[in-house]
Design a protein around this nucleic acid. Structure first.
Lengths: 221, 221, 221, 221
DNA sequence: TATGAATGAGCCTTCATTCAT
DNA sequence: CATGAATGAAGGCTCATTCAT
């Protein structure tokens, strides 16, 4: 009987168990980021980890669970990084800026983790996960949509569909993700452009105290 | 050996050949859109087409060529649809709006084609195609970036990095693509929101005749 | 009904039929010699001939018959070349020399034909031909063995097993065949060495008039 | 992924691994010898071994490696058998006789192994092995050519091209190989004939102490 | 806990051959 | 006579997973 298989289970994981799982997840991230999801067979991950093929199956219910853990791990880190920074802001406008900036900052600082996630998603890794990518995205959009709603109520934002705007913000940020492997990509410059872009796109023109974002200094890439 | 394989050769395809290839491509689109790229084996596509496994290999150099044809076909249609509509506009602002609207209009009208492409791309189908996704995206960005540059020179657009803005537009549009399978998704509403979004984000505030886009009627989704 | 398929058939081949068959056989020889037997699919041969795949099946009962015709053609030419030259000699010793020399001379002059035969034989082409290679070889050995027997009766040759000696002669000659593709291989020098070799090995030492072959001028290769 | 695949790696094969590999190699020899190389698919070999198809792929990098192992195994055994017997002789003449006799003796004692090798070579098995048959033969000729050179320097052998003579010896021996399946073939008689043949063909006539080989007792086959 | 061995399904591809036109 | 279209079998290979030790 494998650990964590007990039905209805309390996840009673021993220390070794937890360590192994973490180790394998890290290893998987490296392999996926470097070799591509298509080449990330369990055999390859096992070899890169320095353990046997069977041990992965022992610690994870299947490849699906391992991949799932990779995603949960990285997305968890992203949330842990962004959350406090967004919540530190008092205005919706400030929170939006913090959202974009902190998201791109994390991507900049953890490029291989992002690369792994991109590889999984664009490599078909979601297909067998039983994850509905649409619903998953929907949920990830909720906080952002809520942020926009609050900003509209407060009069900081103009009228627009909060969900579509949220999807747009995510779409723009996510479209940067596949490019993190390009070391020349200047994510800080992107962050400046994107905050400006969405401040212009969302601000309420009838609000006097809404200072115009600085629009002068853009340089061509 | 397939017909028309001669290196450097004339692509002398017979009528039947062309018809079969087109039929198989259509069939592949349906299978991929419905069953997912991971399940779209040649065997499955053949069965769905009502032909033998070998016949696909007879008409296509390999799975790669078939998938490639699917992409070329759909992207070709998209370009054929958008091109005239964008070029019909005289101002950069108008072209940008036409670009967004016509792209989403095509997506709206050909959802299963878009779904197939999404499945291929997010299912790892690009990996074996020898297509560098980064470079491919870069090229698809060029016309848009050029549009922005012209608009900046003309004073229609404010100063911003044309490439990042181009990537943003594409990012937002592409982020809608995986959702076309959701029949409730109102792409026309999206189009309205997105044209407004990018008009606000790009317009030159120091230009008097730059009429403000209508910002009043947005409804929550 | 294909030509030549009539049961118990008179081979009534039209002129065109004969020409086509000859053309395809020549084409097959070229393809096999150049690309190797493993790559000599009917499709490849058809393309090289400039005709359709089906036409080969139309003119030949199957791939086996085509390959068979290649072998019969080349072996027939070899026999036609060697026969007169061997029979022109009056002594068994002379015939043996003529046998070796004319065989190597043909090989020298028709290297690509020999290469094709070698490719077929060493490429598994005999397996499906229903040809028992052992029996085939046995038959090809008969004239040579007979030659040796006559020479022994006449007292030209010493006592030895004629069949084994025949096999040895063929073995040595055949061992040169795979090397004809090496343009540096000097088959004339080989012929000189081999005639000497077998004259020494077969001559009857108790026969006074048996002139010693010249043994002085050998050069290292 | 197979064990022991690490590039540049230590070949740490477990005991079971070694045993399985040996078992499969033996099994492959049997199948190839009995059914022919063309029919020796991995599936057939697996069934004959009593294991699953996948297990062969697990233990061998591919069919090529398996076939390669068969050849290496048999050729290694041949060398191990012949080497000491040749080296035990003090004269070049003696070594030549030992070479021929021991080679044929091995063939006589291991007919199915020889049959397998013959099947592989004459069945096209070398084509995908990346083995240049010409070069491979060249190397196998070296020791023999060297033997002849030494004998010529010592005055035991007459003047002749050592390489051509070496090729002749091998050619004659190899021409016996395809016949080992014939149980009536008397390889011991062949050995007697061939040693005499090559002693006559190579001996230095100007050397007094060069005793004439016995030439009297040959029987017709 | 951990391993190496073993399985079996599925995939893409090649190819000789057949057939309607 | 000749073609191109179509078939179906077979082959080698990869891979997640299971199991005895």
């Amino acid at each position: 009987m494998r650990p964590g298989t007990e039905t209805g289970g309390q996840k009673t994981r021993t220390f070794v168990e937890q360590a192994r799982r973490a180790q394998v997840v890290e290893s998987a991230i490296e392999v996926i980021a470097k070799e591509g999801y298509a080449n990330a067979s369990l055999a390859r991950i096992a070899r890169h980890t320095g353990i046997s093929r069977g041990l992965i199956s022992y610690h994870f219910a299947g490849k699906d669970e391992l991949i799932s853990r990779v995603l949960v791990t990285v997305f968890g880190e992203v949330a842990a990084y962004m959350g406090p920074r967004v919540e530190a802001e008092r205005t919706a406008v400030g929170q939006l800026r913090a959202y974009i900036e902190s998201n791109l900052a994390y991507m900049d600082a953890h490029r291989s983790r992002i690369a792994a996630v991109v590889e999984i998603i664009s490599g078909g890794g979601l297909a067998t996960l039983g994850v509905d990518p649409i619903q998953a995205e929907e949920e990830s959009l909720m906080p952002l949509a809520e942020l926009f709603r609050r900003g509209q109520v407060d009069g900081e934002f103009r009228a627009f569909d909060p969900l579509i705007m949220a999807r747009s913000v995510r779409g723009v940020i996510d479209s940067m993700a596949p490019r993190v492997t390009d070391v020349d990509l200047d994510l800080k410059a992107c962050a400046r452009e994107l905050t400006t872009l969405f401040e212009l796109a969302t601000r309420n023109p009838s609000r006097r105290d809404n200072e115009s974002p600085d629009v002068s200094g853009a340089k061509p890439s």
